[in-house]
Structure formats: structure tokens, C-alpha cells
Amino acid sequence: MNRLLGEFFDVDVIVDLFPGLLTEAIKNTLVFTFLGFAGGMALGLALALMRISHSRWTRWPAAVFVDVLRGLPALLVIVFIGFGIPIAFPWIKYPFPKYTPGCTALALVAGAYIAETLRAGIEAVPRGQMEAARSLGMKYRAAMRRVVLPQAFRLVVPPLTNELALLFKDTSLLAVLGTEVGGKEILKYVRDAVNRTGNTSPLVAGGLAYLLITLPLLRGVAYLEARTRAAR
């Protein structure tokens, strides 16, 4: 029993993880998550609007993009952006290299999933809403922005929150990329600590760090879904 505690809950090893676990690992994980999500939302909205367009020249490229990004493992996309592009195009230098490749890859993957979520939300808004807006003389863009999208977003808050939680966990995949000084996210940080100390406790600490964020988020999703069900 003591041995188990020593293997997984070695206090000295865990204390040594600080402050880096907070000031570097968790901080970077949060940065990757929020920038990836923000980028994913922007991309996802653009793709969703393209997917519902009347013109097939707008619809098809968006559909292909979404299908490919959803069909590829996120890790492949990350390795592609992090290693593949620099190898193929050596003259390309990412600005802010600590965050750019990771956030870009996460935004691409998240964007594809968010696109489908937003599209479903837009299509769930009753057609009469757009008809009423257009019959007043509102242009398509204004009707979308002021009538349809506000309602669509409200509908998709639970799945979007879920996506946020998933993205937070996917930041762990960035561990395969080389990191600048001070650029480690949680998984890489604790895995390096495991190698350094020969002790498994850092993984437990890392796991707790993830759960600290994901559990409230997932509870939040369940609560929001229940509220949406009740309101209907």
C-alpha cells in the first residue's frame, strides 16, 4: 500500500512540479485551448455558412474540407502542421513558434467539428424565422446575423461546450511537437517529469489538472442540455 502511494502520490515529486505545472504547463494548455477554440469558432462559422450556401462552388469545397478534417486523426493534422509543413517548405517560419503550429492545428480540427455543429444549429432554427425576416425586406446577411444565428448559437451551447472540453484534452496531443523553452503543455510537462524522476506521480498530478477543468465543463454541458430539454 505504501509502495503504491509512493509510486503514484510521491509528495516530494509532486511538490517539485510546481510552480512550473501552473506557470507553464497549465497556462500553455489554456492558451492552446482558447486560441484553438476561438480559431475553430471563426473557421467553423465560415464553413457552416458556406455549407448552406445556394452555390455549389461554395458548398463543395467547404464540405470536402470538413469531411477531410473530421476523417483524419487530430494527431496527424498536428504532426502535419508541426513537422510536415516546415519540412516541405523550409522557408516558412511560423510567427510566435511557441503557439502558432499547435493553435493552428487545433483550430483546423475544431473548426471542422464546430462547422457541423453550427450547421445543425442553423438548420434547426425554423424556416419561418428567415421567411419573416426576408419578408420585412431584410437582406440575407442581416437576417442571418440578427435573427437566425443568435437562435442557432443558443441551441448549440451544449455541444459547443462539449467541443471545448474535448479540445482541452486534445492539447495533450501537442506533446509530440518539439517545444520552445517554456512552451510545454500539461502532458509533455508531466511526462518529462516522469522520465526525469522515474516516478509515476507526475502523471497523476497531470491527470488531476485535466480533470479540474474537464469535469466542471462536462457537468456544465449536462446541466445545459437538461435545461434545453426542459425549455422545449
Partner: peptide, 9 residues
């Protein structure tokens, strides 16, 4: 319209 189509938000 028959179904009013007021903007709920």
C-alpha cells in the same frame, strides 16, 4: 404568417 414567426430572442 399563420405561425406568427415572431423573433423569440
Amino acid at each position: 404568417f399563420q405561425s406568427f414567426n415572431l423573433f423569440p430572442h
